[in-house]
Amino acid sequence: MKTTTLTNPFAEDVTKGLTASPKFLPSKYFYDDRGSRIFMEIMAMPEYYPTGCEFEILSQQSPAIVNELPFTAPFNIIEFGCGDGMKTKHLLKAFMEHGVPFTYIPIDISQEAIDVLEANINLALPGIDMQPQTGDYFEALTGIDSGKPALFLFLGGNIGNYKDAEAIALLEKFHTQMKAGDMLLMGMDLQKNPRVIQKAYDDSYGVTKSFNMNLLTRINRELDADINLDQFDFYCDYNPQNGEVNSYLVSLKKQHVHSALLNTTFYFEKDELVWTELSKKYTLESITTLAGSAGFNVVHNFMDCMHYFTDSLWIK
C-alpha cells in the first residue's frame, strides 16, 4: 500500500479505518447531505420506533419538561445534531408559551439539515430567536454567549452511537462546557423485545442498507475511489445481553479498491466485515450510572407510553 499526504479528516479516518484490523468506518460520516436525507427516510419507517416514541414524549410532555427547569432569566437552548427540528419544535413551543426568553442554537454538521430546520422552525414558530450553527459541536460553541444559563439537547438516541468510554468522554466534554445548574436533555433508547430492535435496524425496504452504502459512495466521490457497490452488502446484529446493535458492511469477494486522491489501495478478504455503527440500548439503571460517571444527576426520565424510549433530563 502506497500512501500520500492526507489533507482532511475524512481522508485520514477512511485510511485509518480501512487499513485497521478489524476494519471500520466512523459513523459520523454517514451524515453528508445525501446521508441526512436517507436518515430522514429511516425515521419515517414504521419499524423505526425511536422517532415516533420521542415525538410522543416531546409533543405530549414538553410542558412537564419545562416545569422541571429552574430557568427564570433569558437562557440558551443548544441542540447538538438537530436534524430537521420536527420533534424539537414541540419543546420550543412549550418554552415560548412559558414566557421566559430564550435563544435556540441548533448545531448540525449538515448545512442542508440546518436549512431544512430553519424553514420548519420559522414556519411553526414565527418570531423565535434562533442562531443556527453548522459544523463540529464544540467548535460551534466557542462563539456562543456562555454567560446565560443553558439547556443542552442531545436527542434522537445519538448517545447510543458511542462506546461506553467514548460516551463518558463526550458527556464529560458537555459537562465542561456547562455551568452549575445547566441541564442536559438526552434521548436514550431503552432495552426491549429484541425482535422490535432488530426490525428497526435491519428493515425489509433496504433503507438502512442504503444509509450504510452511502459511506462507500462518499468515499468514491470525495476520495476519487473505484469501489463497486455491488460487491458489498449490509449486515447488523443485536445482542440483547449487552444492549448493542452493531452494523457492518460486508465484502462479498476478495478484492481491492483504489483511491486516486490518496494514491492508496485498500484490500478486502471475502466476507470481511467493515464495522460502521454502534446503537446501544440502555436500562434505567445504566442511565443513572452513565450520568454519574460524567458528573451529572438524573432529574427525571420522560418515557413514551410503551416505555421504549426516554428523554432523560440531567443537571450539572
Rank of each mutant, 00 (worst) to 15 (best):
G135T: 05
E41W: 08
E172L: 14
S59Y: 00
D237K: 12
K173G: 07
K253W: 00
D226P: 02
L18T: 03
P240C: 04
G181Y: 13
F268A: 05
A291S: 09
Y137Q: 09
L117Y: 14
V66R: 13
K89D: 06
A291Y: 06
G143H: 07
L18P: 02
F154P: 00
L273S: 03
V14N: 01
G292Q: 15
Y238R: 07
Y49D: 09
S279T: 11
S293R: 15
L313E: 14
P240D: 06
I65N: 04
D164P: 08
M178E: 11
L6I: 15
G83R: 08
T289D: 14
N214T: 05
H256F: 10
L91R: 14
D304I: 07
P26I: 01
N122A: 15
N67R: 12
V196M: 15
K209S: 13
T217Q: 03
Y282V: 05
L273E: 06
A64N: 07
K2M: 09
T265W: 00
D230R: 10
Y49W: 07
P132L: 07
L125G: 10
E244T: 08
E172W: 00
T265K: 08
R221A: 14
L171Y: 07
A150R: 11
I105N: 12
K2R: 14
G99M: 10
G17L: 01
I144M: 08
T7M: 11
L184F: 11
H307G: 06
G206R: 13
M130G: 04
K87P: 10
I287Q: 02
A124Y: 11
L252G: 00
N8C: 06
A140K: 08
Q131N: 10
V100E: 13
D115A: 15
I159Q: 03
V14Y: 01
N122I: 15
R221T: 14
D311H: 09
L273Y: 11
N158Y: 03
T265M: 02
Q177I: 00
N76G: 12
Y248N: 00
F309D: 09
A119G: 01
F266M: 02
G135Y: 06
N76P: 11
L313S: 12
Y267G: 00
S259L: 04
M213Y: 04
L141I: 06
S210Q: 15
G243N: 05
F309M: 14
M96H: 11
L273D: 01
K270R: 09
S146Q: 13
G187S: 14
I315F: 05
L69A: 05
A113I: 02
T72S: 15
V196N: 11
L18I: 02
I114N: 07
I65F: 09
H175W: 10
G181I: 13
A291T: 05
I107D: 10
G52K: 10
H258L: 04
A150N: 08
K148P: 01
K87Q: 13
G81K: 04
K316M: 13
Q177N: 11
L141D: 02
L284M: 14
L249M: 03
L117W: 10
R221P: 03
A167T: 04
L171W: 07
D32L: 02
